[in-house]
Simulated scan of single mutants.
Amino acid sequence: MTAPIYQIDVTDISGQQRSLNEFQGKVLLIVNTASKCGFTPQYQELEELYKTLQPQGLEILGFPCNQFGHQEPGSDSDISQFCQLNYGVSFPMFAKIDVNGANTHPLYKLLKKDAKGVLGSQGIKWNFTKFLVDKQGKVLERFAPTTKPLQLKAQIEQLLQAN
């Protein structure tokens, strides 16, 4: 039985339809991002994590979102260019989505249901909320925007070494 996360389709930042099925067997760190946020410098640590652990099976998936303080106003093309020029982002980035409200993307509906926030809340509170998914597609944990990506390194390494 395929994990529900692998049955979700997404659009990448260049407009191509992709299935999350292509990430089966990988550890995933899924992050809602923004270019004009106080947490935007986390792109640097995300990229560092990706360069270090991607060869062992980590995939970081970035989903730009403009729902928090209008901190991601640009087009997908603008966002892609910003990430390349300022942070050399090489991990997969996807088209801008909604993570809360009536138009919540199916991926975020699943993530929020499987890994609730503080006091059981499902809503995403801000940009750079992170979700960790194991190799079997199980959503394990949600991390607040204040959790820096490199703070997750040991936990990710453990998951990469697990069957």
Rank of each mutant, 00 (worst) to 15 (best):
residue 138 K to H: 14
residue 62 G to E: 00
residue 26 K to H: 12
residue 137 G to H: 06
residue 8 I to T: 04
residue 71 Q to F: 12
residue 40 T to V: 09
residue 34 A to C: 05
residue 106 P to I: 10
residue 163 N to D: 14
residue 132 L to G: 00
residue 151 Q to E: 15
residue 56 Q to H: 12
residue 17 Q to Y: 01
residue 128 F to S: 01
residue 135 K to W: 04
residue 140 L to T: 01
residue 106 P to V: 12
residue 122 Q to V: 08
residue 90 S to H: 10
residue 125 K to F: 05
residue 146 T to M: 07
residue 113 K to S: 14
residue 55 P to Y: 10
residue 137 G to C: 10
residue 133 V to P: 00
residue 80 S to L: 14
residue 122 Q to R: 10
residue 145 P to A: 13
residue 86 N to I: 00
residue 149 P to W: 01
residue 46 L to R: 04
residue 24 Q to S: 12
residue 105 H to V: 01
residue 107 L to M: 08
residue 24 Q to E: 13
residue 127 N to A: 06
residue 154 A to D: 15
residue 106 P to K: 08
residue 90 S to P: 07
residue 89 V to F: 09
residue 31 V to K: 11
residue 48 E to Q: 15
residue 138 K to S: 12
residue 103 N to V: 05
residue 152 L to K: 02
residue 133 V to E: 00
residue 85 L to K: 14
residue 49 L to I: 13
residue 96 K to W: 11
residue 36 K to M: 11
residue 25 G to N: 00
residue 118 V to M: 13
residue 20 L to Q: 13
residue 8 I to Q: 02
residue 107 L to V: 04
residue 58 L to E: 14
residue 151 Q to T: 12
residue 73 P to K: 13
residue 147 T to A: 13
residue 116 K to S: 05
residue 96 K to F: 09
residue 102 A to C: 04
residue 158 Q to M: 09
residue 152 L to P: 03
residue 106 P to D: 10
residue 67 Q to C: 00
residue 136 Q to E: 15
residue 16 Q to D: 13
residue 15 G to K: 06
residue 79 I to C: 05
residue 117 G to P: 04
residue 92 P to R: 07
residue 116 K to D: 01
residue 27 V to F: 08
residue 62 G to R: 00
residue 111 L to G: 08
residue 80 S to E: 12
residue 113 K to L: 12
residue 74 G to Y: 07
residue 55 P to Q: 09
residue 55 P to R: 12
residue 5 I to C: 01
residue 131 F to P: 02
residue 98 D to P: 07
residue 122 Q to W: 06
residue 1 M to I: 11
residue 77 S to W: 00
residue 102 A to K: 11
residue 42 Q to T: 06
residue 130 K to V: 07
residue 101 G to S: 01
residue 162 A to H: 14
residue 3 A to D: 01
residue 44 Q to C: 04
residue 44 Q to P: 00
residue 29 L to A: 07
residue 12 D to M: 08
residue 63 F to P: 11
residue 117 G to C: 03
residue 94 F to E: 03
residue 132 L to P: 01
residue 42 Q to R: 10
residue 110 L to C: 07
residue 1 M to E: 12
residue 54 Q to D: 07
residue 138 K to Y: 06
residue 107 L to W: 03
residue 74 G to I: 06
residue 104 T to G: 00
residue 99 V to K: 05
residue 97 I to V: 15
residue 121 S to T: 08
residue 88 G to M: 03
residue 61 L to H: 06
residue 37 C to D: 15
residue 30 I to H: 03
residue 78 D to L: 03
residue 69 G to F: 03
residue 74 G to Q: 07
residue 30 I to K: 02
residue 81 Q to N: 12
residue 14 S to V: 14
residue 7 Q to R: 15
residue 155 Q to Y: 02
residue 161 Q to A: 15
residue 129 T to I: 07
residue 80 S to F: 09
residue 101 G to Y: 05
residue 64 P to Q: 10
residue 116 K to T: 14
residue 159 L to F: 08
residue 112 K to R: 12
residue 97 I to Q: 05
residue 43 Y to G: 12
